[in-house]
Simulated scan of single mutants.
Amino acid sequence: MNIKTLADELRETIRRDNNEGTGKTVPKKKPASKNALDPIVEGIRDHKLIGKEKLLIRLDDKTIFLLKQLKVTQGIDMNKIISYSLQYFLQKHPQIANHIKETLKNLEL
C-alpha cells in the first residue's frame, strides 16, 4: 500500500466521522479551474529578452511592489514583464510608432 492510498483512506474516514451527526456529505475539492490570466502569464514567460542595451527607468513604489510580487508568485523577472508590456503596448497602438517616424521625417536638423 502506498502513501497516496493511505492518505485517500484517511480523508474518507475524516469525512465520514465529521458527517455522521449532520447527514451531509462534504463535497470533494474541485480541480483548479483555469485562470483567465493563464494565457497572459504564459505569453510573458515565452517572451524572449533580446537586445543588449540596458535602460534605467523610474517606476512608482506601487508598481515596483506589484512586480516583486509577480516575481515571487509567478517567477517572472521584472525586465521580462516590462519588455513584454512595452512591446504589447506598441503592437496594440501602431499609431505611436507611425507618429514618431513622421515627426523624425519632418524634423529639420
Rank of each mutant, 00 (worst) to 15 (best):
L10H: 13
H93C: 01
G21A: 08
V41I: 15
Y84N: 05
T103M: 03
I81T: 05
E42H: 12
L59R: 02
S83A: 13
I82R: 01
A97H: 08
D46N: 14
R45A: 03
P27M: 03
K71S: 05
K34W: 00
N98L: 15
I82A: 06
I96M: 04
E20W: 12
L37R: 05
I57P: 00
E42F: 09
L56Y: 04
R15H: 11
E12P: 08
I40M: 10
I76Y: 03
T5G: 04
E108S: 15
K71F: 00
A32N: 06
H47I: 00
I81F: 04
P94V: 08
I3H: 10
S85D: 04
K54Q: 08
K101A: 10
L6D: 10
Y84V: 12
T25S: 12
T63C: 04
L104P: 01
L107S: 10
I96E: 05
D60L: 00
G75N: 02
R11G: 06
K24E: 14
K62V: 06
L55W: 00
R11A: 08
K48D: 07
E42Q: 13
I50G: 00
V41G: 01
G21C: 07
E102N: 10
A97C: 08
T22V: 09
K28Y: 05
E20K: 11
H93W: 13
L104Q: 11
K24F: 09
I50F: 07
N18G: 13
N79A: 14
E108V: 09
I50R: 04
D38H: 02
E9H: 11
H93L: 13
A97G: 04
I82D: 04
Q69I: 13
M1L: 12
Q87T: 11
V26L: 08
Q87R: 15
K30Y: 02
A36G: 07
N106G: 08
P39W: 01
N19W: 09
D17M: 02
T13G: 02
F89M: 12
G75A: 01
K101I: 05
A97K: 07
T63H: 04
L90G: 04
R45T: 06
K68S: 04
L10C: 12
D17Q: 14
F65L: 07
L109W: 07
I3V: 08
T25I: 08
D38S: 06
Q95H: 15
K92N: 08
M78R: 11
S33K: 15
M1A: 06
R15E: 13
G75S: 05
R16H: 05
L67C: 06
N79R: 13
V26E: 14
N35G: 05
H47P: 00
P39C: 02
L86W: 07
D60C: 02
D8L: 10
I14C: 11
E12H: 13
K101N: 02
G51I: 00
I14D: 12
D60E: 09
D17N: 15
A36M: 11
G75K: 01
N106H: 05
L10F: 08
L6N: 10
L37G: 12
A32Q: 09
H93Q: 11
D17I: 07
M78Q: 12
L109Y: 14
I50M: 00
A36R: 05
E53C: 02
I3Y: 03
